[in-house]
């Protein structure tokens, strides 16, 4: 791994951890500790389009582990991991098929769906799916849309900044 890549990866992990911390300050309606909106997905969407897949996965794992150890518990780690992994899988699947905005929207939705499934498994109540499903899918598409728009801006800006650098 080149030094440039290493610096960029470290930077992205730091941004992701900061975003994760910020959104942990906003209350989340799912009655389980550690469930989040998924704004830190910004880093994942960005790296998915800008970097090789292996780097995207490494950045994601580093971000989740660091966030988990700094601000979370084992259960919050479980929630962010399940949300992030499901979200990433869906986005990898969709990336070649549809435009970035839609990829990000579905990433946001499945971030929340992953957490909801985990919540159902942990609490053993599938009723949570009916109670929170609508809200989480709606919120997921909105955060996904926001993340998508921001990612587009960042991608455009980074193209200018890194032009000639890489």
């Amino acid at each position: 791994m080149k030094t440039k890549d290493l610096v960029l990866d470290g930077l992205l992990v730091a941004v992701g951890v900061a975003l994760g911390f910020l959104e942990s300050l906003i209350p989340f309606p799912l009655p389980v500790p550690g469930a989040k909106y998924g704004f830190a997905n910004l880093v994942t969407v960005y790296s998915l389009y800008e970097l090789p897949l292996i780097q995207t996965v490494l950045i994601l794992m580093a971000r989740i582990l660091i966030s988990g150890f700094l601000f979370g518990s084992l259960s919050s780690l479980l929630y962010s991991l399940s949300g992030a992994v499901l979200s990433l899988l869906i986005m990898i699947l969709l990336k070649r098929q549809v435009p970035l905005l839609l990829v990000s929207i579905f990433g946001g939705i499945f971030h929340n769906v992953g957490q909801l499934i985990t919540a159902c498994l942990v609490t053993g109540t599938w009723g949570l799916f009916y109670t929170y499903g609508f809200f989480l899918v709606l919120v997921g598409s909105l955060t996904g849309l926001t993340v998508g728009i921001l990612s587009k801006l960042f991608l455009r800006a980074s193209e200018r900044i890194f032009h000639g650098l890489r």
Binding site: V98, P99, F106, G133, F134, V137
Partner: peptide, 19 residues
């Protein structure tokens, strides 16, 4: 794109009704 939006729309409607 159309199919994905259709899935999203119907999922939202379904989940809303199941609430």
């Amino acid at each position: 794109i159309f199919i994905l939006l259709l899935i999203l729309g119907s999922a939202l409607i379904l989940l809303f009704l199941l609430r």
